[in-house]
Write a protein that binds this DNA or RNA. Structure first.
Lengths: 338, 338
DNA sequence: CTGAAAGCGCTTACAG
DNA sequence: CTGAAAGCGCTTACAG
């Protein structure tokens, strides 16, 4: 491999000068700089990242921690993809860890291996204990998705609240009256936030018929199917699910019960996965932009690395997508309600 | 941060000795070694990876390159997840790159940044040009999935051939006679291999009715739906798809055409995604083990890094999963055929 | 505008 | 069994 010393020699300068020339230090004369750059290019010089990291204490590499179970899902792929491309746009590399069974070991190694400028971490559930170790390590750290129990964490997240409010309003406008929900797992931040808006829209916890609330297992289609089957015994006219797979499970359960969507039971989801728009599905849902969340996360991290005082928080809007699964198209009823 | 020098000082030895003690060099006396390890632990010493990499030329980090489009799919997540956990089992870290629009720049940076011991690369299509640059760079390199035009590449891959043969045999056993296929994209190794077995099972290219072969766009549900719709005009009694999403699209197309599965048209897929086992789907398919492929890839890479002469190749078996979508359950007919 | 020198934190012949 | 020294490839005050 070719090193800086090689470049310096062939361009008849010192390593110091060569180093400066290659990072466009204005103190270097144009002739010298050009010469160095030419030689570097000709030799195919690539700076050794390990050496540079050791010298500067900065690697340009971010760590990314994702729960391994998330990777069974499109969601995990989206997070990984979003953070990786955003980092790439800033010429940053990404090291990936899956927080498996035994996260703490891997994590401890991560934090102070001297190779990582900062960390983006995705959590499934609020208050996972190993998180604190990271947050308190002094390493710049941003959560993707949230972690509500601490007020000192930086994060980038989808704005669940606003979009879910719009969704609930739409449900109301369509004249649905017995609205049930299949919420996501307890403790999952997205699930909690979306559910809190459901509760709010229904007039508060004490106004809610407990029979119309089910928890969907693991945010999954199967969980949605089972939950919907239970809910249908109480004759809801609409089911609002915490994500699309559960909503699609609900659709199947409705069909299996001999009922029709949206005439008998409306169904709504969250996430706008690809399948939500299939001709035989046409699910009303909320579309979000994970790429944007990844970008925000990386930008926050960069600021923290640059010395900014945290916490820095950013929320990315999501938008209601209305499709046939909730459209009873009785514009008149809407008026009547109002 | 605490460095080796700190550990050495507090345990009253030299950095050399401390370094050796921590890597269990047998030359160090037990007392000294124990003392060093105790101090290291007490201080929470973590070796600086950049420094060690610079000194030894080995980082324990692998690069992983995945086409960004793959990440829209469960498949991409599986590859990432499999390689990352396998690397973790060998105490290896993984740096991830998405081979986006402009792979070559990122790739060139990767190859000789001195931070990576080797590379696992996932390709979509045979003969992507930028691959050669990598393979010829001297960096140990293993493909996950294959790349057929070169004979000097190492890879770990799913055994498409054997399992697809079993699938075609099953289709025959069920008495299907006008068997159509929705194959995956041209040039995609998995698609080509699976299709080649289809052709073989149908008695060779010249025996095949071109009307019974369609290419499914992007391996997608929508592509499968469109392809199946076209195929149904030629009255196949079975559709073998190159993956599950396309097969599920085909199922929907069959239903939309007012036909039933498996009575009128059998449908089979590949991959055994989660949805393939839904009660309303029950798709005959092929189950593979991406985790195992990832493990093989990492093991091959480790051998190459250790100096083994390539190419090293390994193929992981996949297994036929028979479900209702192809089960006409006419055991008698099967006999009649035989 | 340029260069000699020290240093980043580790490893590893080499000598004892 | 242990240590002093050189070196991995870069950066960056410091001096000129």
């Amino acid at each position: 491999v070719v090193t800086l010393a090689d470049v310096a020699r062939l361009s008849a300068t010192s390593r110091s000068t060569a180093s400066r020339a290659l990072k466009n230090d204005p103190r270097i004369s144009d002739e010298t700089a050009d010469r160095v750059r030419l030689v570097a290019k000709a030799l195919g010089y690539r700076p050794n990242v390990a050496a540079r990291t050791l010298a500067t204490g900065r690697s340009g590499i971010f760590g990314l921690i994702v729960p391994s179970t998330l990777m069974d899902d499109v969601f995990g792929a989206q997070v990984v993809s979003a953070v990786t491309s955003a980092a790439g746009e800033h010429d940053g590399g990404v090291m990936l860890w899956l927080s498996h069974d035994r996260p703490s070991r891997a994590i401890r190694e991560t934090v102070s291996n001297g190779l990582i400028d900062g960390l983006v971490v995705s959590i499934l559930v609020q208050n996972e204990p190993w998180i604190d170790e990271l947050l308190d390590s002094g390493l710049p750290c941003v959560l993707i998705g949230r972690h509500s129990s601490r007020t000192d964490t930086s994060y980038a997240a989808i704005d669940n609240i606003t979009a879910t409010r719009a969704l609930m309003e739409h449900v109301r406008d369509q004249g649905y009256e017995r609205v049930a929900t299949i919420r996501g797992p307890i403790g999952n931040t997205d699930a909690e936030e979306r559910h809190s808006v459901f509760v709010e829209a229904m007039g508060g916890a004490d106004q809610i018929d407990a029979n119309l609330v089910e928890v969907g297992d693991h945010f999954s289609y199967e969980g949605g199917y089972a939950a919907a089957t239970a809910l249908l015994r109480h004759r809801p006219d609409c089911i609002v699910a915490g994500n699309d797979p559960m909503a699609m499970g609900a659709l199947a359960a409705v069909r299996a019960a001999g009922l029709r969507t949206p005439e008998d039971v409306g169904v709504a989801g969250w996430d706008d996965v690809r399948a939500a728009n299939r001709p035989d599905v046409r699910l009303t849902t909320v579309h979000h932009n994970m790429e944007a969340v990844g970008r925000e996360a990386v930008e926050i991290l960069l600021k923290l690395i640059g010395g900014a005082q945290g916490p820095i928080r950013k929320t990315v809007p999501a938008s209601l997508v209305i499709r046939e699964s909730t459209l009873r198209s009785r514009g008149d009823e809407k008026e009547a309600k109002a």
